[in-house]
Amino acid sequence: MRLVAALILCALAQGSWAQDCRTDTVYLKGDWGQARFSVEIADDVEERAQGLMHRESMPSSAGMLFVYDRPQKLSFWMRNTLIPLDLLFIDATGTIQNIHHSAQPLDETPIRGGSDLTHVLEINGGLAKAMGIVPGTVVRHPTFSNLEADWPC
């Protein structure tokens, strides 16, 4: 049921692309379609360390966007994270480079996203596959500096 609600919300978001970019919203688009997620931002050491730990649920249209100052290798784990998550690893241009699907709650195995990454978007586990989100998908948010010319913030 949550998945159906998320797909409906994302479909409704398709009509709102003309809106100004907001720091609490990310937009995604690719050959599969378009989506919008309300996000919390984790852009300092403390916020990134806390992430989505200890939460028992998250709305299907929500997520957390981790923002880093410079391109780097990124690796995550699920310590103290109670819900399965999809981790979307993104470069400075706003392009998804790698996706880890349905990371298992409480698992401390490193989840390597790759190198030259500046962002990670965490959404509910299973949503990326269900929606068809794949590497190459473009993400729109004010923290990306080199977005494609027809979709800038």
Rank of each mutant, 00 (worst) to 15 (best):
R2Y: 08
L7Y: 06
I8Y: 12
I8P: 06
L9E: 11
L9C: 06
A11H: 12
L12S: 08
L12E: 12
G15W: 07
D20R: 13
T23R: 12
D24S: 08
T25F: 03
V26P: 03
Y27C: 13
Y27P: 02
L28N: 03
K29G: 10
G30F: 01
G30S: 04
W32I: 11
W32V: 12
G33L: 00
Q34E: 13
Q34F: 06
Q34L: 07
Q34H: 07
A35D: 09
F37Q: 05
S38Y: 06
V39K: 04
I41N: 07
I41K: 06
D43M: 02
V45I: 15
V45T: 15
V45L: 15
R48Q: 14
R48N: 13
A49H: 02
A49F: 02
Q50A: 14
G51W: 03
L52G: 12
M53C: 02
H54E: 14
E56R: 15
M58N: 05
M58V: 06
M58P: 05
S61C: 11
F66G: 08
V67Y: 13
V67S: 13
Y68F: 15
Y68C: 10
Y68E: 10
R70N: 10
R70I: 05
K73Q: 14
S75F: 04
F76M: 13
F76T: 08
W77F: 09
M78P: 11
R79N: 03
N80A: 06
T81K: 10
T81M: 14
I83D: 09
P84I: 04
P84A: 07
D86S: 10
L87E: 01
L88P: 00
I90Y: 12
I90M: 13
A92M: 05
A92F: 03
T93F: 02
T95F: 09
I96D: 12
I96W: 08
I96G: 10
I96K: 13
Q97I: 02
N98L: 02
I99Q: 08
H101M: 05
H101R: 14
S102F: 09
S102I: 05
S102M: 09
Q104R: 10
P105M: 03
L106D: 12
E108P: 00
E108Q: 02
P110L: 03
I111L: 15
R112E: 15
G114Y: 00
G114W: 00
S115E: 04
S115F: 00
D116C: 02
D116T: 03
D116K: 05
D116Y: 03
T118D: 02
H119M: 10
H119I: 03
V120E: 13
V120K: 09
E122R: 13
N124P: 07
K129W: 02
M131G: 01
V134Q: 13
P135S: 13
V138T: 15
V138F: 06
V139R: 10
F144L: 10
F144R: 04
S145V: 09
S145C: 13
N146P: 01
E148V: 14
A149C: 01
